[in-house]
Structures are given as structure tokens and as C-alpha cells.
Design a protein around this nucleic acid. Structure first.
Lengths: 193, 193, 193, 193
DNA sequence: CATGAATGAGTCTTCATTCAT
DNA sequence: TATGAATGAAGACTCATTCAT
């Protein structure tokens, strides 16, 4: 009542953290609320005090892990420097951020697929955020750095490749330091002789 | 009567078909064997007569839907024509085949993620099959069609973009007739002015 | 209301009581948890709230019915009076106690056989407890009441006969008031002319 | 049709043998007909061709293992020699025969308890057979070898002790060569100084 | 004699959720 | 806030048994 509660060790926070971890690793349907409360060291009624239902808990987990992408895209769209540099920077942070937060990645992947898990309008959010990268290309076109063309397809190639790099990295494959530069370079120069 | 039974409406086949459909749409954990047998018009003991367990059923579903990719890649690697044409052909069949078999796509996606669903060595198969497309680029390099470079990254850009096109298509977005040509063209020419 | 709950009609107690009764009469494997909870007027989740599994429930039933024997043997070993009187007293209480608690007898018999029912280290406990009766004979030998000899075999004859009397009694056969005296008398005097 | 079938490897015989083994080791309720037919290398319809039901199969198993006791008692009652020698001989064969056929012992024990397993009138048969040993004592009384007395109790002491020796032996405890002589000697002479 | 295929009812166990305290 | 206790429904899986061949 008196102070803002920022207690990271509160029951609610522990539940959210453990739920995120479990939903990410086992999926939504395969994770039971019993597992969650045991991992969080609480009881079921406490969980239901803070969250309306298992579905609601999942939604909040997703929401809490959805913050980073928009900022990342903003940075690329509004940042300084050439389009090329900003694309490289975006890919680099996107992939390395994902590698450092594997649970977030898996959770959002699960939520995006919509095959397991309650249906959320995450995919649209996700797609449209990534789609905004086309603005970077448009800016590059405006400055003469990039020739006119199908920016949407270009963004898809970059992001699709980045996803593959990210998932491979999560599976243990090494991610070269300059992977982002190489991808963007390839996109810029093309492969034709 | 006494001949080989090719009855596609046998219990086993119906179970496999309905299980594939349900696993694809709801995920592994969220699909109950009761749902499967009710959809297949059989009983649980019959399911367990043909399949060792729910896990085993899932595995067989995946196996049965895994056939196409290898052939597709073979066609691209061993086919006639320029590297460019073969890449375009591959992407076209890959995406349009996926659009016509949404359940297969979702099932394999689920199996590949491994977050829901029993852990299968599908991802490696999948990745290595797609990786073989690099051979097409190598052939193009040999014929002078393509300049030397990082073929693996190029393949990832193509396949990553194709996946995005495919999933967007499955979500209802229109897939242009010439999407494959445009993607490959972009990859060949690059976006740099 | 706020005091210590000694409610013998609590769910846990009712489950234990009914489980003991059913396990004793039908055996472990032939008794279903559904039967137990229906007899106890509860639900299956409640049973699993208090007991880890059907096995665990059985174990607790056995444990709860295992109390009496040790005290009985203690009484015989440490009691006052001649060895003969103490043997007679033991046999009498052993058999009549069993006749008044048929479920306990059958449950422990089942647990002891180990053919049905989860394997418990009850048999050893049981055997070694009864074996302690040899001390009574040794005391009798020390006082000159009993001649030196094979006390273990003597105990086995007494207990074996008592078991037969007990099971016959449970089957409906009458148990004479002086059966214990007669058995011990026979053991003391022998049958030889 | 032509010859008497004594084929010990026929399906029926294999089923009986494996069923006896399994019923003896796991109990009636805990043994499934699937286990039986798999152990016997047959199929369920074959089992039901030969036996009316699981109950019937159990009954036949018991019947097939019930042969020896009557003959054993006959031998003791009608045999030559002193009562003492015949009692010793009976106990010896009873226990050693049991030690060599542990499955038979456990099966009959299960059937006798009637707690698991369908209810059979085996116990009465068993008891009355053993009860006939009292005749041996009566003969001994007639020849002056044994003094008049409670022969039934004497028989119970012998058989009860023998059962304990037998079960201890099945549990791994050594059975001395002269256990029978010692038991009978104890019964004859008594333990009193 | 033997079998592949099938089943209704049942097994043990756990689910997400809620109540009184 | 938090909890011990409770529940209806459902989970995966197996039971004894049977039928057409």
C-alpha cells in the first residue's frame, strides 16, 4: 500500500518467471499449473489469485516477453547511419538477444505457431513489427544506397535467414561474429556473377 | 476377398489420417487419443493395437508426412537447367506444396520445434536436406552463373523467406504467382544500387 | 472449531479404513481405487492428495495394522509368571485378537505372501518378532521348567498350530476356550507314551 | 484322433504351465491373459479355445497342482512302519517336495487364502487331507506307541511347523537334513524337564 | 486349431479449478 | 494474501473377451 512493490521475489513474479520457463520448454498444454506452482514455491490458489486462468497466465507470460522487438525495430528505423549499418545492427542484436534468452524465443515461437497454446494475436504483431524494417530499405532507396525494388521480399530474406541462424544457434551450432554483415552483404551484392 | 488388402479405409489408415490432422491443428499434448479415435470412428484399444503409444502414433504421423522433401531437393540438385531455374522451381513447389498440405506443414513444424511433442531427430533431417540446396549454388558457381561466395547463407535467405511466404499464405495472405522468381531474382541481383 | 482436529471421520481416515477392509477381503490387485473412494465417500483426487499412489496407500494400511504384534511378544518375553503361563497367554491373545480383527489378519497375510500386493519387508519383521518367543523358552530352561533343546522348532510348532487355529476360526470353526492350554500342554508333555 | 495326445509342447500345456507360473508369482488378479499367452507363445483366442475364462484357467491350474497331497497322506496313513517313522517321512517329503515346486506352493497358497483369486473349495480339501494325518496318530495310539490325547492339535503343531519351515526355505533359509526328525522328536518327547 | 482385429468397460493417475478458512 | 482440502472431468493405457476368417 505504502510503496510501489518492485519485489522481484514476490509470488507473482516467481510464478511468471517459472511459467515462462516451463511453457517455453514443454509447451503450453504439456505444462501443468501444479508444475508451475511447485517450481515457484507457491500454491495453486495463490496462482489463481494473481492470474485468472492458465490461459491468462500464458498470455501474461507472452506479453512480458514481447517488449524487446518493437524497440529493436524502432532503433533500426529511426537510428542514425546508413541503411546497411542499421540492418546489420538489427540482425546482430536480434539473433544475439535471442541466443541469450532462449526461453523467450521458444515461448514466442510457441505462441506464434498457435498450434499448441491459446490463440493469441501475436503473429500479426510480430509480422508487422518485422515488416516495418521495410522502411529502412525505403530510406536507403531515398538516399540512393539501395535501388528501387521489392523491399518486403528483401526483409523476408533477411529475417528468414536470421531465424534460421538463431534456431541453429539455439541448437548448439556456432554463430560467427560477422554473420550479420555477411548476410547483409549477400543481400546487397547478390550472388550473380 | 482373399487378395492383398489395400483398403485405404482400414482402421489403421483412418487413425493415422485423423491423428495427423489433430496433432497438426492442436498440437501433440493438447490432442487426446480419445479425440483421435472418435474422429477415426474406432476405439482406443484398436489404436493401441496398431500403435505402441501416443508417442509412437505421433512418430508414425511424422514419418508418413516426411516423404516429400527429400525428393524435392533431389529434383533441384539433380535436375536439368540453370541453377536459377532449379531454385525457382524448388521454391515454387516447396511453398505451393505446403499450401496444399497445411496439416503436413504444421505437423512437421511442431515436430521440428520439439517444444511440444516427443523429441524426434527430424530437425536434423530437415536442416540437412535443405542444406543440400547449397549444391545447386555450387553447380551454378561451376558453370559461371554464380560468383563464388557463402552458399549456405544464400540458401538460408531463400528458405527463410520461403517459410515466411508459406506461413503467411497459410494464414490467408495471397501468394503471388511469381513470388519464387522475384525472390531468386532479388538474391541474384542484390539490392545495392 | 479452531482446536486440534481429532476428527476420526476425516477423509484420510475413512480412506485408510475402507482401503484396509477392501485390500484384506479382495486383495491388492483386485481392489480398485474407485472402489476405495466410493466406499469412503470421497473422490479419487482426494485419495491422491493424501497418498502418493495405490502402492503407497497399501503400505500405509499395512503399517497401521502392524502395531500389535511387537507389544504382544514383549508382553510374553518380559512378563511375569512361568514360561508356560506366558506362552499360553500369548497364544490366547494372538488367536483371539486375530479373530476380532479379521481384516488385519488377512491384510497382513496378503502383505506377507508378497504374491499379490507390492513387496514389503513385512515378512522379516513378522518372523523375527515371533522368533523372539524363543527367549521365553530360554527363560524356562534357565528356571529348570524346560529341558534344553531346540527352542526355535518348539516356537514354530506353537505358532504354526496357532495360525491354523486362527484361520480355521476365521473360516467359522469354533475355537475352544482352552485351546491355548491344550496346545502348550501338548508341547510340554509330548505325545509319546 | 488316432493317438492319445501327450504332447507336452501343445498349446494347451504351454498355457497351463505359464499360467501356473505367473499366477503363482504375481497372483491371479495381477496376471493378465495377455501375459499368459505371450509367455506361452500363443494367442488369446487359442487360450479361450481351451479354457472357458480366466477363472476357469486358474481353476485348472490349481487342479493340476493339487495331485500330490492326497497321495502323500495316503502313504503316511497306509504305509508300513511305526507312526513316528511315517510322520517323519511325511514331513520330509511335504517340505522338500514344496521346496522343489515353489510355484505349486505359492499357487495353492494363493488359492487357499481366497483373498486374491476366485473362491475355490480348496482350503477344505487341503485341511481335511492334512487332518487325515490324525489317523496315523490313532494307529500309534493303538499300538501303544503314543499315549491317548488330542491328535488333531498334534497334527496341527506338526503341519504348522512344517509350513513355517517350508516358507522359510522358499525364502532362502537353509532347511537342515534332519528337520523332520527333530520336529517329530520334539512332539514325542515334549519340552518339559 | 489358430489368428488378426476389434471392443466396452475398466485401470491408475492427473488435470484445471474452487471453496472455506 | 495465502493455504489445506476437495472435486468433476479427463488423461493415457489395459482389461477380459469375442468374431470372422
Amino acid at each position: 500500500m505504502a510503496l510501489v512493490m518492485m519485489d522481484e521475489t514476490g509470488s507473482r513474479e516467481r510464478i511468471l518467471a517459472e511459467a515462462t520457463r516451463l511453457f517455453a520448454r514443454k509447451g503450453f498444454a504439456a505444462t501443468s499449473v501444479r508444475e508451475v506452482v511447485e517450481a515457484a514455491g507457491t500454491s495453486k490458489p495463490t496462482l489463481y489469485y494473481y492470474f485468472a486462468s492458465k490461459d491468462g497466465l500464458f498470455r501474461e507470460c507472452v506479453q512480458a516477453n514481447l517488449g524487446g522487438l518493437a524497440q529493436l525495430v524502432d532503433l533500426a528505423v529511426n537510428g542514425a547511419g546508413s541503411a546497411r549499418d542499421r540492418l546489420v545492427g538489427f540482425l546482430d542484436v536480434y539473433v544475439r538477444g535471442g541466443l541469450q534468452n532462449p526461453d523467450t524465443v521458444k515461448l514466442l515461437l510457441t505462441a506464434t505457431n498457435g498450434v499448441d497454446a491459446p490463440c493469441l494475436p501475436i503473429l500479426e504483431t510480430f509480422r508487422s513489427e518485422l515488416g516495418r524494417l521495410a522502411e529502412v530499405l525505403a530510406q536507403g532507396e531515398a538516399t540512393g544506397e539501395i535501388r528501387p525494388g521489392d523491399h518486403t521480399s528483401a526483409v523476408r530474406m533477411l529475417c528468414g535467414a536470421a531465424d534460421i541462424v538463431l534456431f541453429s544457434g539455439l541448437q548448439g551450432e556456432a554463430v560467427p561474429d560477422d554473420f550479420a554483415e555477411r548476410l547483409v552483404d549477400l543481400l546487397y551484392r547478390g550472388i550473380a556473377r
